[in-house]
């Protein structure tokens, strides 16, 4: 049992997400930084799909009601257990009454707090992931609040390791690799030059449904006539205003804005860790 003593503004329970329901409008959800989630579960000897806490924005605290093994990763954060520094990517045994304090997130968007066995919440439509818009999955389909009591599960497949390496390093102004999107031809050379040469800044108006990017606009033709079509996580849509929106885990399953490009899957986790105000630029893979 883990008790949320001081919830941050945004923390939810997520696993690797749901599949099989996108045709009904249900997005995949799941941890935004999949690479870090996979690495933490591997470190803890968990099933790759074990659920964990995706923690954002600010600090807070958890108290363990039983002994457990905990590990953190993803965003760079200052964390401690009973006052002792809690290093990222390093499983630590805790006892009943121990408190994990997240002082602050230094860099990145999502700190992942994982426990050996995973967070046990009911499986909804095949996943433990929270989808806030529909109020399903995770802990009562909502953000964690003070006083919430989370059960620890038994999604264990092996022994816990001692320490691991970060699956990716968070760089400000990072080059994110993309491939052409289905409507890449609607954008002329000027638009493509703007897209690839301009740096963007992640807007404050960004969340798990999508990241808005500021800095350059790309003109296109034909958006009004494009029938809505399936999107994907990492799809870079360009609304008529010209500033792109990148579809994230809880984003709409279909959309009518032209997709100039799509983030390569091996860059999605790094991209997801970009916080409001962070700089980003795109590199087109041939």
């Amino acid at each position: 049992m883990i008790v949320v003593i001081a919830a941050p503004p945004f923390a939810t329970v997520q696993d690797l997400g749901r599949s099989g329901f996108r045709d009904l409008g249900v997005p995949v959800s799941g941890v935004a930084d999949r690479d870090s989630s996979v690495a933490l579960n591997s470190l803890l000897g968990n099933d790759v799909n074990a659920a964990m806490i995706e923690w954002a924005v600010a600090g807070g605290a958890l108290r363990f009601g039983c002994s457990a093994t905990v590990a953190v990763g993803g965003a760079d954060a200052v964390c401690s257990v009973n006052g002792n520094a809690l290093r990222a990517w390093t499983p630590v045994d805790v006892s009943a009454g121990d408190e994990v304090l997240v002082e602050r997130i230094v860099r990145g968007r999502f700190l992942l707090i994982a426990v050996r066995g995973g967070i046990d919440v009911p499986i909804v439509l095949g996943s433990r992931s929270t989808l806030l818009s529909a109020g399903i999955g995770g802990f009562d389909g909502r953000r964690l609040r003070n006083g919430d009591r989370l059960s620890i599960g038994d999604s264990i497949v092996g022994v816990a390791g001692r320490a691991g390496a970060a699956p990716h390093v968070l760089n400000i102004g990072e080059a994110i690799h993309v491939m052409r999107g289905p409507q890449s031809a609607l954008f002329d050379d000027h638009a493509w030059a703007a897209f690839l040469s301009a740096g963007f800044t992640v807007s404050r108006a960004s969340d798990r449904t999508g990241y808005r990017l500021e800095g350059a606009t790309m003109k296109h033709d034909g958006s009004a006539s494009l029938p809505s079509e399936p999107t994907c996580v990492g799809a870079i849509q360009v609304p008529d205003g010209g500033e792109p929106i990148v579809i994230m885990q809880d984003g709409p399953t279909v959309g009518g804005y032209p997709k100039i490009a799509v983030v390569r899957s091996n860059y999605l986790s790094r991209f997801a860790q970009l916080a409001p105000g962070d700089a980003v630029r795109f590199v087109l893979d041939a």
Binding site: M179, R180, G181, P182, S225, P227, E229, P230, C232, V233, G234, A235, K259, V262, V263, R264, S265, N266
Partner: peptide, 17 residues
């Protein structure tokens, strides 16, 4: 049939509804 990212493909049947 075109790529929709690394993990999906998109089949376009028509340009209009």
């Amino acid at each position: 049939i075109v790529r929709l990212g690394d993990d999906a493909l998109l089949v376009t049947f028509a340009q209009a509804i």
